Amino acid sequence: MSNIMAIKINDAAARSEPRDNCDSTGGPEVSRHDDADGIDWSKAAPSWVSMFTGLVLPLLGFLLLVGSFDVGLSWLFERWANPSGMSQLLRSSIMLPPALILAFGCCKLFLHLKDAKNAKAGADRRP
């Protein structure tokens, strides 16, 4: 383990240019870790557009899926039971838990099919 650390320290020292141990204020220079790894972490972060696309849009799609299932189940319940005295809001709130279960089931099925497709593609690539 100490050999690895020595290599990393020597590698970082080889990349840095020789300086005196004083900064512009006259005090001792403080070595920063950012200089040693050579990565600009501010440019390595994802952009706001990609974060919006990756986080918000899938959630909106899931909410749209749940809403579609809720409307469909409410319509089926209205046709099947013909509740004349039940309001639309009550019927939608009754159908929300089954709509959530159906949406999660569809997502689980999609992930299962995607994994099966990737496993088959990985098996086809092996000699």
Rank of each mutant, 00 (worst) to 15 (best):
M1L: 10
S2K: 05
N3K: 10
A6D: 09
I7D: 12
I7M: 05
I7Y: 06
K8H: 02
K8A: 03
K8D: 00
K8Q: 02
N10Y: 03
A13G: 00
A14L: 07
A14S: 10
A14T: 05
A14D: 05
R15G: 06
R15A: 03
S16R: 04
E17Y: 02
P18F: 03
P18W: 02
R19G: 01
D20H: 04
D20L: 07
C22V: 06
T25W: 09
G26R: 07
P28R: 06
P28H: 03
V30G: 01
H33A: 02
H33Q: 03
H33Y: 08
H33I: 06
D34W: 04
A36P: 00
A36V: 03
A36E: 03
D37N: 09
D37P: 01
G38Q: 06
I39L: 08
D40Y: 10
D40N: 15
W41G: 03
A44K: 15
A45H: 08
P46T: 13
V49R: 13
V49I: 14
M51D: 12
F52A: 15
T53N: 12
T53G: 11
T53C: 12
G54W: 12
V56S: 12
V56P: 09
L57A: 14
L59R: 13
L60Y: 14
G61R: 06
F62D: 02
F62S: 04
F62G: 02
F62E: 03
F62P: 01
L63E: 12
L64D: 15
L64N: 11
L65T: 08
G67A: 15
G67D: 04
S68K: 05
F69G: 00
F69A: 02
F69W: 04
D70E: 14
D70Y: 00
V71I: 14
L73S: 01
L73V: 04
S74T: 14
S74A: 15
F77A: 13
F77P: 00
R79M: 08
R79P: 02
W80M: 12
A81L: 12
N82E: 12
N82G: 05
N82W: 08
N82I: 08
P83V: 02
S84I: 05
S84G: 09
G85K: 08
G85Q: 11
G85H: 06
M86I: 14
M86K: 01
S87V: 02
Q88C: 01
L89F: 02
L90R: 05
R91C: 00
S93L: 11
S93N: 14
I94P: 00
L96W: 04
L96M: 14
L96G: 01
P98H: 10
A99R: 01
I101D: 05
I101H: 04
I101F: 10
L102R: 01
L102F: 12
L102A: 15
A103L: 08
F104C: 11
C106A: 15
C107D: 11
K108I: 06
L109I: 10
L109V: 09
L111P: 00
L113G: 02
D115N: 13
D115Y: 10
K117R: 15
K120T: 08
K120H: 10
A121G: 05
A121P: 03
D124M: 15
R125I: 08
R125K: 11
R126P: 02
P127W: 09
P127Q: 13
